[in-house]
């Protein structure tokens, strides 16, 4: 009986320790898509993200209208013409940390991480893989990553007149500080 109780409480404790989820609602996601002719960069400071330290499942979501660009006209074209943010208000990523076994969420440090999954932008889903870093500290986990996104993959039409100003590949940067979800 006692052993049974012990095993059950042990299991419950390990389950509790292993189902550790981390989340943020104020992550930063930005991209650079400029060329030598024009600087184009945009930042979104309210990305929502959650990951499960036990399974490696990780998800991100951003509102397209939350990207801030340098000029009013750029902002308008980004929303109305390219991203069609009324029709596709969000971009999401759902995937998995593939090298979970080499990351310890109990031991502070900086761990390289690889994430693979499905990125959905402008209503188009694509399989992507990105490398980044997870910085584990006492109370939080910071995720840093940088990866290329080929604009053409997501059915985003760039008119000929601005083709020299907009890069064919946007470089996306992620900086999220997660806290444990209780």
């Amino acid at each position: 009986m006692k052993t049974g109780l012990f095993i059950i409480s042990f299991l419950l404790l390990t389950v509790a320790a292993f189902s550790q989820k981390y989340f943020t609602k104020n992550g930063t996601v930005s991209f650079q898509a400029g060329t030598a002719l024009e600087d184009i960069d945009a930042t979104n400071k309210s990305a929502a993200s959650v990951f499960d330290a036990a399974t490696g499942q990780i998800e991100f979501a951003v509102l397209i209208r939350g990207f801030e660009l340098r000029r009013a006209l750029m902002q308008e074209h980004f929303n109305e013409n390219y991203m069609e943010s009324n029709k596709y208000p969000k971009a999401t990523f759902k995937g998995k940390i593939s090298n979970l076994q080499s990351i310890s969420f109990q031991k502070p440090g900086s761990y390289p991480a690889t994430v693979s999954g499905v990125l959905e932008i402008h209503g188009v889903k694509k399989q992507v893989t990105a490398n980044g870093t997870l910085q584990v500290s006492g109370t939080s986990v910071q995720a840093l990553a940088k990866f290329p996104v080929i604009i053409n993959d997501y059915n985003i039409a760039i008119p000929g007149i601005v083709r020299d100003k907009i890069s064919q590949t946007a470089v996306v940067t992620v900086n999220c500080t997660y806290t444990p979800l209780h």
């Binding site: 609602k25 509102l63 801030e68 208000p89 969000k90």
Partner: peptide
Amino acid sequence: CTGKLMDVVFNK
């Protein structure tokens, strides 16, 4: 207002 994810989000 930029829309709703989990929360309703405002920027600037």
